[in-house]
Write a protein that binds this DNA or RNA. Structure first.
Lengths: 162, 162
DNA sequence: AATATATATTTTAAGTTTGAAGTATGTTGC
DNA sequence: GCAACATACTTCAAACTTAAAATATATATT
């Protein structure tokens, strides 16, 4: 026998599932919008691409350099992907690739001086662009949103185990 | 002359800018994580790709079909991109492409019966996956997050004008 | 030491993505 | 009508991206 309450509960379940799906779509669309915007401006002002910028940004944040695995993990992209982008940046004289000493499998990637200088120029503008996109959020808002994303990432972790 | 208050204000400014940049990085990383997760599962369970699924999802939501421009706007990807994905889906018998009658430039894209049936099967699982990823958020949380993304999109709009 | 296993990275093929140029069709102003 | 412009879409080249296979090196087991 199915009670009225059980029927009601199912409707509420269906509603929240729909809502969460809508939220994901919105999140995806918003993120793509920001990426498109940043990509367009990076192209226009610095004649470079978003993936190149992202790699340089990750390297700039780390003082000592990063190996390929760390880079691909930080950017959430595949291993082979990083190989190509790093290659292009090396050939442009923006990155340095050094073979590990104790472990000769690992590659240590670092910005060259030229790379550092270019990145610093780009970062100044980039910060302004991002700051404007998120200008509606004050310090507390950003902390709350940060927490929300943190929660999602925790869910990702547990679903990765499967 | 620079007062102590002005110095303080600058420090607060710098802090919030940093915080917003951090927030954007987190948002990007979280979104990529979800995409990777969904991609993996779509591949594993249905031997299909994320862009294919996204196109089918957009078409399923619209009863009457969509033209190429509407599709590319809905998915926030370039026009030429949609052409390729639609082509593959048409060749697999999942989509239909009809030339517009009054305006012969526009292409009306619709799911075939086969496409609808396949999508419905995929959507059932997809909803569960998304529901789990966002399970930490109740109805009110989702509404709040929705509003936050809405705010960002408004900022995107105004920066697009430039 | 030899073998098996694991890890870090690159290579490869297929697919996706962009931005710009090209094609086809519509619309507007003269 | 027709030239100029605008719009919808496709094509193209280059870059990006993934998953899987291949390569090279390290670690563990016997």
């Amino acid at each position: 026998m199915v009670s009225a309450n059980q029927i009601k509960a199912k409707q509420v379940d269906a509603e929240i599932i729909k809502q969460r799906t809508r939220l994901w779509l919105k999140m995806l669309k918003t993120t793509r919008g920001i990426e498109n915007e940043l990509r367009r401006k990076l192209q226009q002002k610095f004649d470079t691409t978003l993936p190149r910028f992202d790699v340089m940004a990750a390297l700039y944040r780390s003082e000592t350099g990063m190996n390929m695995s760390a880079l691909s993990k930080a950017l959430m992209v595949s291993n082979g992907n990083v190989t190509g982008i790093v290659e292009r940046l090396v050939s442009e004289g923006l990155l340095l690739r050094l073979q590990g000493k104790e472990d000769r499998r690992v590659m240590l990637i670092r910005l060259t001086i030229k790379g550092q200088e270019l990145f610093e120029k780009m970062a100044i503008e980039h910060r302004v662009w991002v700051d404007q996109l998120f200008s509606q959020f004050d310090f507390d808002d950003t902390k709350e949103l940060m927490d929300s994303f943190e929660k999602i990432q925790e869910s990702e972790l547990s679903s990765n185990e499967k």
